[in-house]
Design a binder for these strands. Structure first.
Lengths: 169, 169
DNA sequence: ATCTGATCGTTTAAGCTTGAACGATTTGAG
DNA sequence: CTCAAATCGTTCAAGCTTAAACGATCAGAT
């Protein structure tokens, strides 16, 4: 094989970290997705429902930015969620370009029931790592993927800390 | 909102690490994919070409396991690679169920040219992290995604160490 | 030799995802 | 006011991905 890989140690290190990162993500995502499918909810649908539950109603454009998905994708996922009766669209009066997405009571019941199960699966998968390792992973991954919001986790922490209702919504 | 998230600190920690992991992977993968698309190679195609370059010819089933992809997916990707003239199928004589995939000279030229560029992009993205952080990330992610082989990195390290041709194949 | 079960690759249907083109709406400049 | 540019959601074509059903091939038992 006449071609060498000409990278230095730095490049080898970066590639190694990168590959393991993507594989770990793929692998854990597959496990949690398998659980969701058994509940009749796709990955994208779950992500939207979770965002609406933990962050409140928001318009599709915002949803797309939060979830790192294209506009067309959000339209499709919301279509499907609407078809199931889990969310409803509400055109904004002050800016008729925007459509705010709301959880319906039915949708709220669903995600409220499903999310704890999902959390349990994630906890089980992540339990392969020690607490310290999970914390390191969180910090490093956050630094790497910075610019992306953290969705539910901040809210979860607040809920945990205060431990009382935030009846807003 | 009458429903609390009932998880303990352990679950919150796991979720937080998980979300940041998936987001970091999504985010970095998007950046590297964007570069590949400009070269007329899809993600899956690149992964196959890279595996063939760094691990040598192998049958589709093995390819699927290495890349964590379904059999049907491997068939499609190899179809497309074959259509471009970058790989060829070679039915095995000793076991006619298997089909070994080989890089063509044209395919080898392509991946040999493209891989260093890809490595450079990865190195740039990962340079947001210090060397120590990258090393930590590699270890932790590897532990989490264990069972998955590391594809090129081991081979790259060997090439780097020995720094001479391994003209095999 | 024949049969059974396992393995490998292919095909198909379904769903996800994206980018680009498009229409509706708003904003701001003139 | 009027028009141009920007923003938001929708639609469409294309490609990726998977699971399941299928045919071909092999290995082992009888």
């Amino acid at each position: 094989m006449p071609t060498h890989f000409q990278g230095d140690a730095e490049t080898v290190r970066a590639l190694s970290a990168y590959i393991n990162l993507v594989r770990a993500s793929d692998s854990t995502l597959a496990k949690t997705t398998a659980h969701l499918e058994g509940l009749g909810v796709t990955n994208g649908q779950f992500a939207v429902l979770e965002a609406l539950l933990h962050l409140g109603p928001m318009c599709q454009h915002t949803l797309g930015k939060k979830l790192l998905r294209s506009g067309g994708n959000v339209t499709l996922v919301v279509d499907n969620l609407e078809r199931h009766g889990w969310v409803r669209r509400e055109r904004q009066a002050e800016d008729r370009r925007m459509i705010q997405i709301h959880l319906t009571p039915k949708g709220r019941r669903l995600i409220t029931r499903v999310f704890p199960e999902h959390a349990k699966v994630v906890a089980k998968v992540m339990s392969q790592l020690s607490a310290a390792e999970q914390e390191q992973l969180r910090k490093i991954a956050r630094k790497l993927g910075r610019g992306a919001d953290e969705l539910c986790t901040e809210r979860l922490k607040r809920e945990k800390e205060h431990d009382h209702d935030q009846t807003k919504q």
